[in-house]
Design a protein around this nucleic acid. Structure first.
Lengths: 203, 203
DNA sequence: AGTTTGGCAATGCGATCGCATCGTAACAGC
DNA sequence: GCTGTTACGATGCGATCGCATTGCCAAACT
């Protein structure tokens, strides 16, 4: 029929404008008008692609999840000779806010978290990407165990949760200015050192 | 001169109404009118005790800090024969959202966090209570080291940060419904088990 | 060529926001 | 008992919010 516009692309365009704004003001502090302005279009246009603000937020969250997954995948593939440890380290460092981009990404995550706390639908969308990552972490730990690099007594599922905890919390402290990215990375390494040696048969 | 009103008490009263609301709608979703209604007073009254919304938020944050500190202190004193490990465990469990009250407290923390990310003044207030707790954790780890319960190779400052990370992150996952409080507590114990035995001379 | 339909801008509406202002009631000091 | 200061409720203002409505333009399809 009429024009040919790639809906998905437009939605992504809007979502990315939203991300940029979210970094500065949090999620609740962002209005549809601001998003439209940031995306360089009229408010009516934004409304055309998202029936409500909530729908826009949910799309942007899923988009972010996808991007993060891709980013982490790329990191892993970029590893020359990946070992479970190097893979885990790459993931954890990737999660940490090290530059404006990753800082934005981290902030957006928190912004969504707090909305998810009050909005069950958002909580569902928010939680969906998590088990996947934890599962991946657990798998890496398991492989390291089989290679004898991590003590057999370790519980992969719990270890995965702990690894995530460290990246998450260190990230928060970086944002609060209580820690530098370099310090956070060295904390990650400190922890990996212990996980990958305590009681293990090799270093 | 006129009436005799305890300003501090009134402010606390308002702050607590704010906390109750924050649990439900996050920090940005709370209006002065709602706070006034929740506190059972008129909006003009709230304005009388806080010149601006920001000032109210900052006071409530400090109030929360104080309460949490007191709560943790009480927990420690309640320990019959406290050991560094039992103290740390009590603190970590105290931080976790286990019931509506502690859940609310945790949510409020997140709500303030996100505001602090955009507001330097709030970030300052937010970060002030943190080093104190980390310092306390580090001291406990150090004492355990001296008792031979934690390997000497451990770095108390980093361990403190890791301990906080675990409580913080597990708390988030509880709120997202991805984990039960019981699971989180067992994760805490799992971690303490390793910290307090790996390479250590005693159990 | 005319009709249809999607893309998009503009505008309006009702609600709500933080904040300023003003009026009033209550009480302390002279 | 008058005065001055404080407590606090009521109201109004300008801005902004999400959302609904409307209308125009351009591009397919008949």
């Amino acid at each position: 029929m009429p024009k040919q516009v790639d809906h998905e692309q437009r939605r992504v365009q809007i979502a990315e404008a939203l991300q940029r704004l979210t970094t500065r003001a949090g999620l609740e502090g962002v209005s549809l008008r601001q998003v439209a302005a940031e995306a360089g279009m009229s408010m009516g246009s934004v409304q055309h692609y998202f029936k409500s603000k909530d729908e826009m937020l949910r799309f942007a969250l899923e988009h972010r999840h996808k991007l993060r997954t891709e980013r982490i995948s790329a990191k892993i593939l970029a590893e020359g000779r990946p070992t479970p440890r190097s893979i885990l380290r790459a993931c954890l460092v990737e999660i940490l806010p090290r530059d404006p981009d990753s800082e934005a990404d981290f902030l957006i995550g928190v912004a969504y978290f707090i909305r998810a706390a009050a909005d069950p639908a958002m909580a569902k969308a928010f939680g969906e990407g998590m088990p996947e990552l934890l599962q991946f972490f657990a798998d890496q730990v398991r492989q390291a165990q089989e290679a004898g690099d991590v003590p057999a007594s370790a519980d992969p599922a719990i270890e995965a949760s702990l690894l995530w905890a460290i990246a998450d919390s260190q990230g928060s402290e970086i944002l609060m200015g209580q820690r530098t990215p370099a310090e956070a990375v060295s904390t990650v390494d400190y922890y990996l050192d212990r996980l990958f040696s305590a009681g293990g048969s090799r270093t």
